[in-house]
Write a protein that binds this DNA or RNA. Structure first.
Lengths: 218, 218
DNA sequence: CGGATGACCAGATTTCATATCTGGTCACAA
DNA sequence: TTGTGACCAGATATGAAATCTGGTCATCCG
């Protein structure tokens, strides 16, 4: 499994430099100091290798979120959470490329079914958020609306000239503002509510990780 | 000029059926009942022909907006206006394809500089909206934020599985809700304010049309 | 004579055959 | 038992030849 990580590291490094298409399994094996066949002892195909890589990044994000929620439960508030997600993504070119989608970096992988992976289990979080009244109840087609509004900040980013002038923090603030005012109730929930909701988020995250791990390391 | 419109009609019809790439200037000329050379009497290149076509569609949209604002000045409110824009676009595959961007339909045209055309002169409208306090004043990076949030509804649409279940009206409502709550002040502006703002919008639109016309018909 | 045309051309695109590369396997080595 | 790299089929790249198409212009017609 330490070897699996070495292979994933090599995959990440090579891909960031040359992109999915130009990186061969053999390159990866060499860079990781193993034989090509060894890569296939871990994953059945190149795409599964990449799926593992992206899932590992997702786990990192999840662990970041978990630590953040433990430190400060008020980060469950959708506006804060959206902000943190955006910043997490802007620090992770591969995940960003998957969602953006960046043909250069991930090639045909951007169309891979893993895109619809429950990467952040959006639906479950939405349900919890609604139950704790972290979201206002009068949003029409709430899941669609929230997704679409947030997606704008991820998708529009690359194609907006004005976006170049702003740094990631400013964009994250912009997203947070939008979520705060369009999707949250006027009053901030009580600290107790936030703590309880944060705990649920953490537990969803915790349940998410083992299957991901299993997928990655077999 | 009646002939110019016939050529543009043919261009629109053929493009909607076969896409930019598969449509040749000769096809267009034949369908319009003119010689190929005649097309080049109107526009210097195929791309200019398409630019003219998209500008003509823009004019139609502008005229729709103008009529709408005259009928009901309260449609200047950003939420209403965003709603109407979204619906206008969903009825116009070519404009949508330009912004979406749809490679199938418009080919390399989606990268054409006309994308940054001041199609709806967003900046000027923003300035007017701010002056009449149609927009709240505390939005960080206001232009970016509003653009990004709205763009989500246009861009995310095609790639969201949930989007298929909703019709254009529902999505437009979703957008309107977002704009209403994230970007507008709590109190609705007075009818007088709305009327005045609407008048300014109309005049900006009016100034926009002649140069477009000139571009289209030379 | 001036506006319209379509034959024509260069360069872009497609096609097709060949050569190369690469994901994936497996017999064998450590 | 674990790991390897030579090997293979199919995918992809290459390049030359054939085809197509945007754009021009000498000619024609009203």
């Amino acid at each position: 499994m330490e070897r699996a990580n070495r292979i994933l590291d090599a995959t990440r490094d090579l891909t960031l430099r040359f992109g999915y298409r130009k990186v061969t399994v053999e390159d990866i094996a060499t860079a990781a100091g193993v034989g090509k066949g060894t890569v296939y002892l871990h994953w059945r195909t190149k795409d599964e290798l990449y799926e593992a890589l992206l899932l590992r990044e997702s786990i990192e994000v999840i662990e970041e979120f978990t630590a953040m929620l433990r430190r400060d439960p008020s980060q469950v508030r959708p506006c804060r959470f959206a902000r943190a997600s955006f910043l997490s993504m802007s620090r992770r070119p591969l995940l960003r490329a998957l969602f953006a989608p960046d043909l250069e970096l991930l090639g045909r992988l951007v169309r891979h079914p893993m895109r619809s992976h429950d990467l952040l289990a959006a639906d479950r979080f939405h349900t919890v958020a609604e139950r704790f009244e972290l979201l206002r109840s009068d949003v029409p087609s709430a899941r669609y609306t929230l997704s679409a509004a947030m997606a704008g900040f991820y998708l529009f980013d690359g194609m907006n000239p004005k976006g170049a002038e702003l740094d990631a923090e400013a964009k994250a603030d912009a997203l947070a503002f939008t979520v705060r005012h369009a999707f949250e109730p006027a009053e901030t929930p009580s600290p107790d509510t936030l703590a309880a909701a944060a705990a649920e988020y953490i537990s969803i995250f915790r349940d998410l990780i083992p299957p991901y791990r299993k997928w990655i390391y077999g």
